[in-house]
Design a protein around this nucleic acid. Structure first.
Lengths: 202, 202
DNA sequence: GTCTATACTTCGATAGAC
DNA sequence: GTCTATCGAAGTATAGAC
């Protein structure tokens, strides 16, 4: 029955996503995915030929969610600083809903035999963003910094804490709920940093 | 011969470190370690009973290198800002010599069955550092920010780029040599950020 | 201490019945 | 489409000779 088909497929995808994100490719077990989906291993292979195949499917699906379309931010011509602020808010909010993503992406990319997955990342050096910086710089609206280093810093500050989440929770003795709050407060904190860094006499 | 003993053990440790750091526990192969050490698998088990055992040994050895003794920085009473600057320089320099460490630590910690490894990390909330901030704040030498968030941000900016190294290299089209330079320049860049963030009217 | 050969285990994948 | 049973590859660990 077609109805059954897609229902099972849906269950598999849901389970696969959860397991792969939590464990990464190497540590993920087809058995665990089958168990979580409430089916058996054979059926997994019936729907998705191999583990590799299933993984690739999940990776591509999640990766497109992970990197917000920057285009939307360029709509109502904001300043460089305002664009960055909007990005930070959006990015942290996405990560809060997908806390395993940063580690998932990094563990995939760092695997020797998965180097080609880098090419699947919908990231680029966003020329538009750098042009926006240059424009604001020429008008003295922002200080002179290296825009590449700044962008790396912003992504670092947003994404890294999610990877270090177990460590942060341990040493600050907070639970999952409080960690979420910490990341919530963090948005304004990072925006404030960027203001101090970019805006003269702020 | 005792001479032979320690020589072989030394070769094993050297090889194990390289493989474990590059691949993480799950993807590392005892065969690869044996090959790199120029011996066979059986001998690995003769020296270190199991893969788990060998891994734990390497982890504990490297982790102590990874986290610089902050104590040394408190020696000649620097200001909070100066202490942070010294830390950044030292930390990035260590990471540049051990570029796989951030990912190695994170992948170990994130493994479901290795959660207890968190307790092996020689990190703590360094009360001394926060006290130093409070002192400088009371003297209006620094702006008011959340010191915990700031520390998280600094570690993020230093460590994350090493995890994202393959991605950064890919999208900026630079090679290993140039990446090292990028991280070298980065020290001053981050220190500058911290100055803008912390020091009023800077 | 070191090696070869092999046992044991885990896990992805497939065959075949229903 | 779904299940049970089983294969085969890969990888850790050990036995036993030298």
């Amino acid at each position: 029955m077609k109805q059954q088909n897609s229902q099972t497929e849906e269950k598999i995808l849901e389970a696969a996503e959860k397991i792969f994100l939590r464990d990464g490719y190497g540590d993920a077990r087809m058995q665990d995915i089958a168990d979580l989906a409430g089916i058996n291993k054979a059926l997994l292979h019936y729907y998705f030929r191999s583990k590799d195949n299933l993984f690739e499917y999940i990776f591509e699906k999640k990766i497109s969610v992970m990197f917000p379309k920057m285009e939307e931010l360029f709509g109502q011509n904001l300043s460089f600083y305002e664009t960055i602020c909007a990005f930070i808010e959006k990015y942290v909010s996405i990560l809060a809903d997908n806390p395993y993503m940063p580690f998932f992406v990094m563990s995939t990319i760092n695997r020797a035999d998965r180097k080609d997955f880098i090419k699947k990342l919908p990231v680029s050096l966003n020329q538009k963003l750098i042009e926006l910086y240059m424009k604001d710089l020429s008008e003295k609206k922002v200080r002179e910094v290296n825009p590449i280093q700044l962008i790396i810093s912003i992504i670092s500050m947003c994404a890294f804490p999610f990877m270090a989440r177990p460590v942060i929770k341990e040493i600050t003795k907070i639970d999952e709920e409080q960690f979420k709050m910490l990341m919530n407060f963090r948005v304004a904190e990072i925006q404030q940093y960027i203001k101090y860094i970019l805006i003269p006499n702020s």
